[in-house]
Design a protein around this nucleic acid. Structure first.
Lengths: 150, 150
DNA sequence: TATTGTTATACTCTATAACTATA
DNA sequence: TATAGTTATAGAGTATAACAATA
């Protein structure tokens, strides 16, 4: 019976779940927060991206930043040049290996980087529609999908 | 009791769910499939992106493509130039409005665009770890998070 | 000899503005 | 006058290759 309308196939549901995961992950709020910082500071996308990957405390070698960003080290040179010109970071020489230069955020750089990094890690407001139990269930299912963690 | 270890806070779980959604959505398989096509054809990212948004059957005005891609129409001109040079698409004039040109994929363009579009819509293999019921639950929770659909 | 960072250079992505043809 | 597409141009992201200093 009810031959005309069939129950949703699991393949369809999987495709829908996948589409929604991609859709939700493109949170306009992240965009908006980044844009706000770019507008306030006049920074362009490259240096902004660097701010996302720089540690708020301590330091990181140039090489470490290119690894985190997944880009060439020559690009990091120009990125850190810009950050230094804006007074957001500076280079220091490595204490034991003099080939290495490490990047350290300034006070202002740390404030900005904090804002940018928070924009990327703060869940969108839409999550409040879920009950605590639903959040737990969702998290559990996502863990199964991505067992390696992160 | 058990004062030392506390149960995971719902905020922590929300943050974790958000992080995992972003992580899962960056499926390396999509990258890989796109890269394969780029390597085979020598196409760069711009024309590849156009292939993602072009209809496999029928046609689309230049203006429609810039709207779908969210880019300026002047950029579409150069993108479709490239597609035409490679024999993947051609322009036709609109039957009633002679200002408009529509884009039509060639046979080869359709094959390529199909591969690219499938790469973007096919769920990663990891989804097979979930039971049918789990997929349904996941989909249901994601619908709540993103009620507008897509 | 291998590695870190820099420089010079070039390619790709993409927008803005001015322009042409058509509505 | 408003709209579709094109052209010229420029800026921003990013890589490659050659190079200097250090290990």
């Amino acid at each position: 019976m009810t031959a005309g309308i069939s129950a949703p196939d699991v393949d369809d549901l999987t495709a829908e779940a996948w589409r929604r995961i991609r859709s939700i992950s493109e949170d306009p709020g992240v965009e908006a927060a980044s844009h706000r910082v770019m507008h306030e500071t006049g920074l362009t996308g490259g240096p902004m991206k660097a701010l996302r990957f720089l540690p708020l405390t301590g330091s990181l070698p140039m090489r470490g930043l290119s690894a985190r960003m997944g880009c060439d080290h020559s690009y990091v040179t120009s990125l850190v040049d810009t950050l230094e010109e804006r007074g957001l970071a500076h280079r220091e020489s490595h204490p034991t290996d003099r080939r290495v230069k490490v990047i350290v955020l300034t006070e202002e750089g740390r404030r900005l980087a904090g804002r940018v990094q928070r924009a990327y890690t703060t869940p969108p407001a839409t999550f409040t529609v879920l009950s605590d139990a639903e959040v737990a269930t969702l998290c559990d299912l996502l863990r199964k999908l991505d067992p390696a963690g992160d």
